[in-house]
Amino acid sequence: MKKYVAELIGTFWLVLGGCGSAVLAANFGGDGNPFGIAFVGVSLAFGLTVLTMAYAVGHISGGHFNPAVSFGLWAGKRFPSSELLPYIIAQVVGAILAGLIILIIASGADGFALTGSNPLATNGYGSHSPGGYSLLSALITEIIMTFIFLIIILGSTDRRAPAGFAPIPIGLGLTLIHLISIPVTNTSVNPARSTGVALFSGNIEIIGQLWLFWFAPILGAVLAGYLYYSYFAESSSPSVEDMEN
């Protein structure tokens, strides 16, 4: 049970820190205000949430905080299939709680409304893409970004990699992913993150687009996991059976 609680808290922090910074601080004070962190600051916020929680509870649960990461580690023979569903449930619950907290806090400001293309820092394509990008652009972006994210995770946590440093490249990798893809999809690479805020967005179209932000990240993650295990992993790497024992 400790693992599931750790995943819930870690995902809660990821969504609260990342999406919360986008809703509360990205455009604080209006355009041109020096106190607004803009999308560069939001990108950094997402990276910092993963870095801090990976060090805080990664030794308890592995620090997934993302259903796509769990699937990618499973495909890479680093995670048992029996743990997939409880991990995903914990991650989604943590994300939903964070989405609710963001809505409650944001509603305390005069003039707050769930308007615009991406209310509550939701993800989307077409009219719900920050830059107006198409479904195909969003699909390709989310697959590739999650693929690379899992390669970073699998490589930095490989037992041949320097020990103890994995959260740093993982956090910086997620920052870079956001710097690239916020204009396209508002950056998901994480089905729980997308779901947690979409449910409170008040927009049925955004909820209807959630399928892409489950399908594409999981596909990209599974492809990365399979590639890493079949091509980059040591032949003597521990199997899932070894992990369970």
Rank of each mutant, 00 (worst) to 15 (best):
G47Y: 01
L103F: 09
I89M: 09
S81H: 10
A38S: 15
V57P: 03
N27F: 13
R78K: 15
S82I: 14
A38R: 15
S107C: 09
P67W: 01
N66G: 06
A26W: 12
G63Y: 03
G72M: 10
P80Q: 01
L24M: 15
I88S: 03
I102P: 00
A95H: 13
G29R: 10
H59Y: 12
L24Q: 08
A54H: 08
I88C: 14
A54C: 14
V92K: 03
G99M: 08
A25K: 04
F39C: 00
V42L: 07
A22P: 00
P86R: 07
A106T: 03
F35K: 13
S82C: 11
I104R: 10
P80K: 08
P86F: 05
N66C: 08
A54G: 15
L51N: 06
I101E: 12
L48C: 14
T52R: 02
I89W: 05
G63A: 15
N33F: 05
A90K: 02
L85V: 15
G47M: 02
L73R: 06
L103G: 02
A25Y: 07
N27C: 00
L85K: 08
I96P: 04
P86V: 06
L100G: 15
V42C: 00
N27G: 12
L100S: 13
I37F: 10
P34L: 12
T52M: 14
H64A: 11
S81W: 14
I101N: 01
I101T: 14
V69G: 07
F79R: 07
